[in-house]
Amino acid sequence: MAVSTEIQAPRSGRIAPEYKRHGRSKGNFEMFAWLFMRLSGVVLVVLIFGHLFVNLMVGEGVHAIDFGFVGGKWADPFWQVWDLAMLWLAMLHGTNGVRTIINDYAEKDGTRMTLKTVLYLASAVVIVLGTLVIFTFDPCPAGAAADLLPSFCRA
């Protein structure tokens, strides 16, 4: 007898409570996380390739990077928004990716919880710090040597 490999649709939408894979709490979180990985991935290709091109390929490339270079970029709201989006999307995408990996390999409940707590704390610190840096940045701090600052500070 040929074995059919076709997977049949469930005959009833109702699943008896004892066969549910998770309790009430989780909702659709995993589905949104899956979707977010894909949507953020598409946007990150543009943001990160643009970041690398402007910082490594244009003009003098890496040699140009110093305080004045960063000041020049963040004087422009365009690059502030660019970097902010890149920070949040890359950090959330990376954090969710590492969460998946911890769930895959850390089999003991305690280890898994500890690793994920450390992960979430580290990510939160980096996201908050990175956001503050973009918005509280002063390109012309008082008392700094003028030759270290972007050229517009002298004006």
Binding site: L129, T136, F137, L148
Partner: peptide, 11 residues
């Protein structure tokens, strides 16, 4: 992100 944050410390 940590090393970029040094722009808030000093040039």
């Amino acid at each position: 992100v940590l090393d970029t944050a040094l722009v808030r410390v000093s040039p």
